[in-house]
Each structure stands twice: as structure tokens, then as C-alpha cells.
Amino acid sequence: MSAFFTLWRKELTTYFLSPIAYIVMIFFLVVMGVIFSLLVSVLADGSAGVTVMNLLFGSPFFWMTMLVLVPVLTMRLFAEEKKSGTIETLMTAPVSDTAVVLAKFAGALSFYIFMWLPTAFYIFVLWFFSADMLPPDPGPMLGGYLGALLIGMFYLSIGVCSSALTSNQIVSAIITFAVMIVLFLAGLLDYIAHGEWVRQVSAYLSSYSHMLEFSRGMMDSRPIVFYLSGTALLLFATVKIVEARNWK
């Protein structure tokens, strides 16, 4: 257990030792800032039928950013260790393969959460500067962040898994990006497909509509189970892939 925490801490600090983390964070905050300013201008117009969180979490800008950020955050995790050979010292330390995989995932997830923290500031801005000084509705707010967390977990675990597959960071990023795009677009079939079953399957996969629902304050258990089990499955697969160095 203590080995897990040691590894987790190392993974998290490694993010801050590389310039990539800062570039990713700046990029993310710029995009979220643009979204926020658009959102404020929409609110200022007083358009009917929009909610704040819907705009914050459901915007296409947000999705574009997610799809780019996750591969960048995860591509390093195993690929770099394999390339530099440190995987050998890592796997010959007295730690289990499972602890290594979980620590790497936890490190990436912690950085992801860290990246989101500054956005909490927007809510205070809205609260203090809105005319009526009402606190924001907690449901959509919590829902929105829960959605961001769950979807983040699922996508990050795709990234962890693909990083374990290769020793090339670019290849890992491309695999992650491709899988995420396919899942994301499959989710959009809900809006355009004709076949009933296609639409039903697609509704289960649609991160886009899940996020809209979460940010409306609707906590449907189906997407929650989907993301948690998906994450667990991918991490389990990653452990198997890491063990599979043995088979070659």
C-alpha cells in the first residue's frame, strides 16, 4: 500500500517536472475562460432556456479540449518508461503490477482534477456578480463536476491502457485519440441514425448527452455504472498488458 502512495506521488510530481503539464493547463484554462466569457455574454442577453452549467460543460469547445488533453496527459505513463528502460527498474522493485497501473492512473486523475480546480472560481464569480446574489443551484453544479470526473476517469483509463501497449508516446496518443473520437462520435449517432437499435446503443455511449444530463443535475445511474465499470475494465486490461511483457 505504501508502495502505491510512493508511486502515485512520483507520478503526480513528474507532471509538474515537465513543461507539457503547464502547456496543457494553460491551454485548458484559456479554453475554459473563453467558454466562461461566452457564457457570461449569453446570460447578459438574458436568453431563455439555457442553464449555466449546461453551457460550461456541454460546449463543443469543452469537448474538443478534452479529446486533445487526455492523450497528452496519458501518453507518457508507460511509453516513456519503456523507451528509457526505467520500466525494468520499476518492475523489479518489490511492487505488484496492479499497484503500478493504479498509481499511474491515480497520478493522471489527480492532475486532471487539479486542472479543473481553478474553474470553481467561475462559480464564485457568477455568484458574487449576479444581480440577485442567489447561490448557484447545487444540483447542476455537482452533477457537472461529477460528470467531468467520471468521463475523465473513463477517458484517462483508455489513455493508460494505450500507453501500456507501446513504447512510442506519439503512437499512444494517437491510439487514445482515435478510440476517444470513435466513442464520442458513436455517441452522436443518437442524433442522426435511423435504426432504433443503433440509437439505443449510441445513447448508452454518448458522453456528450451524458454530460448535458449531468450538468442539468440529473444523476442517472446508467452512465455512472457505465463509466465506473468501463474504467475498471480498462485498468484490468492494462494490468494484463503489463504482465504480458512476460509472453514475448
Binding site: L17, S84, G85, T86, E88, T89, T92
Partner: peptide, 15 residues
């Protein structure tokens, strides 16, 4: 019980 140093002596260069 083992201290192992692989051939290329890989280390984390950024630490």
C-alpha cells in the same frame, strides 16, 4: 532482497 542495475542503467532524467 535484490538490488538490480540493468544494462543501460536507466534513470528518470527529470528528477
Amino acid at each position: 532482497r535484490i538490488g538490480y542495475m540493468p544494462e543501460s542503467c536507466p534513470l528518470y532524467g527529470e528528477m
